[in-house]
Every structure is written in C-alpha cells, then in structure tokens.
Design a protein around this nucleic acid. Structure first.
Lengths: 341, 341
DNA sequence: ATGAAAGCGCTAACAA
DNA sequence: TTGTTAGCGCTTTCAT
C-alpha cells in the first residue's frame, strides 16, 4: 500500500554506516556503538519513520514473537476472558496473538496447527472446550510448545497446564452456604457430560460429607445450563416439597432462573433461601448484581498460560513428551459475596 | 522446538529437482510441471512432513495473509462476535487474525499499529468503541488498508466501513410495538454520550412522529446500561403515574431490569405492557428468552469488514484518503420476536 | 567501534 | 518442463 516501506539499508546509507550497525542499534546490542552513531541512526530512523520488518527478522532468528491461541469459539463467553488474559501477558512481553476458533472440530484444529506452524508461532495456548473428546492428535505435527488451559488433555509437546479446581470450588461454595446457616442445600446442575460438571457435583458431595450431611439425590436436579432450567428445577423442588433452604447452582444462568422461580413463590433471597451460582459466563453480575457467585479465574488462566509459555520459550525449555509432565498450575476460585448476602 | 523443520531445499534434493520446482508446486503454479514430478515432490513432502515457512514467503511476496483486528476489549460482549465474524471470513480466505485490545488507549493503539506494521499484516479491521474520541491519529503510520466497524471515524487509508443504522433500528422497534397496538411507549435509555445512543433516541422520536404521536419527555428516562437502571426507571415511570403501556429499552440489560420491575408491580408482559430491548450484549436471549429484541448484526459486521478488506487487498485496491470514501455498508438490524409477543 | 559477507527459506524472473 | 540465480530485509559471525 502507499509508499514502499523504508528498510534498514536506507537508514544505513543515509547515516553513512553499515546495516550491521543499524541492526545492532535496533536490537539493543549496541554496547559497542558510539553514542554519536547511535543517536544519528536513531534520528534518521525516526525521521524516515522506519519500522523494522519482523518477517525478515523472524526468518533469521527463528522467533516470531507470536503465539497461537486455539479455542473452540471466542463467542462462547468463557473464552474472551482467556484471550484477554493471554493477550495482556503477551503484550507485556512483546508478543502478539493469533486467534483460532476451532468449533471443536478436530480437522479445523489440525489445519490451524499447520497454519500456526507455517507462521512460525513460538508457542500455542490450547483452550479446549470442556466436552471435547480426549484423544490426542498425531504427535509429529506439534513443533512448538503448548500450554493447556482449563482441561487436562493428553497431547505431546506440552510445556504446562493451567487448570481450575472445580471440585474445590463448589465444595467451598456449599460450605459458605452452610456457614451462613443453611442446612438443606439443593443442587441444580447443568448437563453432566463434562468433567467440570462432575467435579462440581463431587465438590457438593464432599462438602456435605465434610459436614456429616447425608447426600440425598432428591436434592439434586440435573438439566442444562439455561436460566429456563433453573426456574423449572426450582419449581420442581418446590412442588415436590423438598425442604431445601438453599440452592447451589451449576452456573449463573441457572441461578438467575432459580431466583426468578423463588420470587414467583414469594420466597426472599437470601432470607428464606440461600442461593449461589458458578459465575460461568458473567451474566449474574450484570443481571442479578446481588447474587453471590463463585468466580472462576478465567482471565488469570489465560494470563498464566501465556506466562508459562513465554517463560519456556525464552528459556528454551524443552516441552515434555508425556502429558503428565510440564508445569502445572491449579488456580483457585474466589467467592464473590454480593450485597444481599 | 524439537527437530529442525524441513525446508524446500531438502525436499528438492530428495526429489532430485530444483527448489524452484518444489516452490511452484506448492504455489499451484504448476501448470507446466509434469504430473510425475509433482506427485513425487508431494509425496516426499508429505512423508517428511514439510510445512512451508510463511515468513520466508511473506518476505518476498510482501503479503503475510494476516489481518490485524484492533478493538477496545475482547471481553466487552460486543466484540467477540465481531472477532468471530472476521475470523470466519478470514479463515475461508486463508488469512489469520491477530487481536489487539487497546482499552481505548490511543497510545496502545499506536503501539499496535506499529506492531502490526512490523508484522506486515495485509490490513486492519478497526472496531472502535462507541465512545471513543473522534480525532484521527497522525496519518503516515498507517501503511495498510483499514476497514472501520460500527462507527464512522476520520482516519486515513480507509478502504471501507461497516456500520449499523441504529436510528432505523429503534424506529423499527418502536413501530413494531405500535403495530402490536401499544399506544404510549416509554423509552428507557442508557447513557447518552455515544452517537449510538443518540441515534436510537432519534429513531424513537422518528417512529412517534411517523405515527403522529407527540413526543413527551416524561416518557423518556436516561440513565445507564444496567439492569439495575432498568428496574429503577420502570419504578419511576410507575410512581410518576406515566400512563405508558409499553417500554422501549436502550439495551437488553435495561430490558431485563424493566421486566423485573413490571413483575414486581404485577404487570404482565406482554399483556399489560409491551416491552422491547436492543440486544446489545446477548444477555436477553439467555435470561429472558421471551423478550422481543432488536438483534444487531454484529457477527456480520465482522464478517463483512473482513470481506471488504480481503477483497481490497487481493485486488490491490487503493484505500481512500478521505474518510468519506471507500466502500460503505450499512447493515440492517433484525427483530427477534420471541414466544410471548 | 564498525563493516563485509554469509545466510534464514522462499519466490520470481529468466535461462536452458 | 525444469534449473539458475538474484534478491526479500534482516541478524550474526568474523574481520578490521
């Protein structure tokens, strides 16, 4: 477009020095370059609006200062935060990020791996959706280090993992309700076909066990992650006369639905019924600012993943070839206690 | 990482041909190459797991097949859809996308422009936040074509624009309510400091005018884009005994809040009160599946922007230097009429 | 303190 | 139909 970009060569000529000198100055390898030359070069570069060509640089350094971010779908509200976290860390370290939406399609994923390889990204952050199949792909393709996010996954070249302890999180949430004095806690879950969901249910059971409360599956409703289901399940609990005094919800949509149903039944939150949700998609905070929720450190996952990756890249760490290895970080969730609680 | 990638040279040697031949084959400029050689080369390439180095390629072709997507914040729910649309189109055309969150910070934006220039992106999709200042930045920096999204903006090198007609949209929404038989339509707006918000209010006024209804500012409440405000404003309308029979809401959060307040007052939707919201952040569909909303073609904006950009790049179109030029697309909104209406 | 020169892996004339 | 060669813009020894 427009005018041809100026190159290092022109700067060199203009300044009456060699291109090597200019290059060194721009790479801060200028310990041995006289202040005078440096200043002159810098000035000319600025005046000519010189911007180095990172392609040429990458070609020789074999580093693109670019990371791939592979995720199922940026529109799924779980992922923008990850992307943002990763991008923030990347920016600090002067890396860029290429996003790749795979729609959980293995073929597309493979294609992206190839593209990212072509583009010589220095590493990949892999954010699989929770319900992705567990098979690792053919290994030789992965030429660059990978950091896994949110989900453990058998895969070669893994340099690290950043996960959330969902079990602990829901255990913590239920314990919070118990501490608040609620005794009979129902659980409205979303679908049960993800490990995440299973972990959350386990956490609920653990919390009950810890408090010597017998698990009773009449208190547990399994459906889908929709506010509609939250309403419905709550109505069911009410109709079935389950004597619950609190509801723990699989996510925030469910919690919102549950709150509606409670209001319909003229039950007050939190006076009559305690309620808590997993803030999966950040809807709760927008719609029910008073709902206490379990906030997942999603942003942090992205951030930490980029951190591990960049760290590994810059220290030339070798990624492990067994999925069980590499750096592993388990992040904790946080309880967001809102006004009404 | 791991083993050194194989190059075109090795493939050539192995196949006993020149690198030019291999290159041509991989670039589909192989009209003149014998089937035998082609097959042999392809086979060897596959066997050796050859992946071309796009850096080297870009260096000579001066095309990176990469686009920059500059937006305020991917976490703002407006933008993931744009990103997705852009990415979908880009992928089809074999382009990748680098995301850049600017946080509405001009300095960061400039930095990103430089980075994108370094990385030789072929073009940039610019999605400014609605309340961004209107000054264009210093022009010479922009070396590559730009497509603007959602907001008209004075800027050099603009190849096109993709906008939404907010005025028309809200006019349409209000008209829909009028057609449904509602006569006295209140308007709960968010903040008024964006052009978008002003356009929506204008659309409301237009619709009234078209239907010979006198505009009465008692029917209009201006606040912020939060469900809390939706509740509050609705309560105000009720307390002030404004005889409204429908509410048009500045966005979906406001609409959700309004619905809550109506329920509190035992008013049924849509029997007693019609209600409509702008589906700005796609919360309505998750939380109030029955609310009728105005859906903005956000995904499409991203898609079309990428389309214009790629088209321009591939046809070597010159971007215009006055902001008033370039291709301009005004997208229409869609009414999502849900069950209860 | 600086320059010359050899590539990085590839494409694109131009030759053969 | 295929090979030779000259770069693309930069980094990086190795000289000077």
């Amino acid at each position: 477009m427009t005018k041809k970009p100026v190159t290092i060569k022109e700067i060199a000529k203009e300044a009456g020095v060699s291109i090597a000198t200019v290059s060194m100055i721009f790479n801060n390898k200028d310990k041995s370059i006289s202040q005078a030359t440096r200043e002159k070069v810098l000035e000319i570069a600025k005046e000519k609006d010189y911007i180095p060509n990172s392609m040429a640089r990458s070609l020789v350094t074999r580093q693109s200062r670019t990371l791939g971010l592979v995720l199922p779908d940026i529109v799924n509200p779980f992922f923008p935060e990850i992307a943002r976290g990763a991008e923030d860390k990347a920016r600090q370290a002067r890396y860029s990020i290429i996003i790749c939406n795979t729609d959980d399609n293995l073929e597309q994923e493979d294609k992206y791996i190839d593209i990212l390889t072509e583009k010589m990204v220095d590493g990949i952050i892999f954010a699989h959706s929770a319900d992705r199949k567990d098979i690792a792909r053919e290994s030789r393709k992965y030429r660059m280090p990978i950091v896994l996010i949110d989900r453990d996954y058998a895969m070669p070249n893994v340099m690290g993992k950043v996960l959330i302890d969902n079990q602990k999180a829901s255990c913590k949430g239920v314990n919070y309700l118990l501490e608040k004095g609620y005794k009979k806690i129902a659980y409205i879950a979303g679908s049960m076909n993800t490990q995440t969901a299973k972990d959350r249910l386990d956490g609920y059971k653990n919390a009950l066990a810890q408090n010597k409360i017998t698990y009773d599956n009449h208190y547990v409703k399994i459906g889908e992650y929709k506010s509609q289901w939250g309403m419905e399940a709550t109505r069911q609990l009410l109709e079935e006369n389950i004597p619950f005094d609190a509801i723990f919800c699989g996510n925030d949509l469910i919690a919102i639905g549950a709150m509606k149903a409670l209001k319909e039944a003229s039950l007050r939150v939190p006076e009559d019924v305690g309620i808590m949700g997993f803030d999966d998609i950040y809807v709760a905070s927008m719609v029910e600012p008073e709902l206490t929720t379990i906030k997942q450190p999603i942003y942090e996952m992205g951030y930490r993943a980029a951190e591990i990756l960049i760290d590994g890249i810059e220290n030339k760490e070798q990624p492990r070839n067994k999925s069980s290895e590499g750096r592993k970080i388990i992040l904790d969730t946080e309880l967001i206690v809102r006004k009404s609680s």
